[in-house]
């Protein structure tokens, strides 16, 4: 989600809540001879509010599961998730009086900080990355379709090369002592460099073969290679070469898309399980604190 002027109301409301809470906390800390404590009425209130914010933030996952239920627009939920989730951090600090406490509370604090930090990191990624992706991957496709598109690119490239060099057919030649051996039909000598380049470099690149040296992954190196290839090929092979270069560019863009997609969504692998753990341990902490 882009953090823009449409977030102004949430920002103002959050700043007001933070300001009021800070004022209350300072007054409360100053008036407590033994220092602030999570067990006091004020400390408990901060804890309840902070935990309520966390629960609301956690409910976003549930909201996404029932996307078409008319429970408020998903973007309003995400805004609430962002701002209230962020506010939960100072609330819990006020609740704990900036102390980390025992083992459970220490774990909770570390979890909370990690969750908020990963959330901020994710929000920043989702603010900037879509724009970068839009400009750098004009041939973007649906992520789940990438393998299928790659197969199509390989098939298209095979057809192009076969069109210029002739299909790699094998013919059975009978041996004098009985038996047979398969011999490949040779391509015309003038276009051999194309077949060679395709077999050694382009095809492995399109097949995503990481074992080979991938010069084609860099646009400048790739352009240089294709330029060199054109100088040794007859002019009637230039059109196919240009199309192969386009295929190569598309593959590079697909790779870039995969990388960016992983950045855009990978942070959730940390954020979501830790959030779940935080909520569960938070419940344990609340029950233990209220009971004992």
């Amino acid at each position: 989600m882009r953090i823009d002027a449409t977030h102004r109301k949430w920002l103002i409301a959050s700043l007001i809540i933070l300001g009021v809470s800070t004022f209350v906390y300072i007054a409360y800390a100053a008036s407590s001879p033994a220092g602030p404590s999570g067990g006091s009425a004020t400390g408990l209130t901060f804890g309840i509010v902070g935990f309520a914010f966390m629960i609301f933030a956690g409910l976003l996952a549930g909201r996404k599961k029932v996307a078409i239920w008319r429970l408020g627009r998903a973007q309003a939920w995400l805004r609430g998730h962002l701002w209230l989730g962020l506010l939960s951090l100072p609330m819990i600090f006020f609740h704990a009086g900036f102390q980390f406490g025992g083992v459970l509370t220490r774990v909770l604090m570390i979890l909370l900080i990690t969750v908020v930090a990963s959330g901020l990191f994710g929000a920043a990624l989702q603010h900037f990355m879509p724009r970068v992706m839009t400009s750098e991957v004009p041939m973007e496709t649906i992520f789940e379709q990438i393998d299928h598109v790659r197969d199509q690119l390989v098939a298209e490239a095979d057809a192009l090369v076969d069109g210029v060099c002739g299909a790699t057919q094998t013919e059975q030649v009978a041996l004098s002592g009985g038996g047979a051996v398969a011999l490949a039909t040779p391509a015309p000598a003038a276009v051999l460099p194309l077949r060679d380049f395709y077999t050694r470099q382009l095809r492995p690149f399109l097949l995503h073969d990481h074992r080979r040296h991938q010069t084609l992954a860099a646009r400048a190196d790739s352009a240089r290679l294709f330029e060199g290839l054109r100088t040794v090929l007859p002019s009637d092979a230039h059109d196919a070469t240009r199309k192969l270069e386009e295929i190569c560019e598309e593959e590079r863009q697909l790779r870039r898309q995969v990388r960016m997609h992983h950045w855009l969504h990978g942070w959730l692998l940390l954020h979501v399980p830790l959030s779940l753990a935080l909520l569960l341990l938070g419940c344990v902490h609340a029950i233990m604190a209220l009971r004992y």
Partner: peptide
């Protein structure tokens, strides 16, 4: 409102 628009969390 169409469900796709309603369910988009990123506006």
């Amino acid at each position: 409102e169409p469900s796709c628009v309603y369910a988009c969390p990123h506006d």
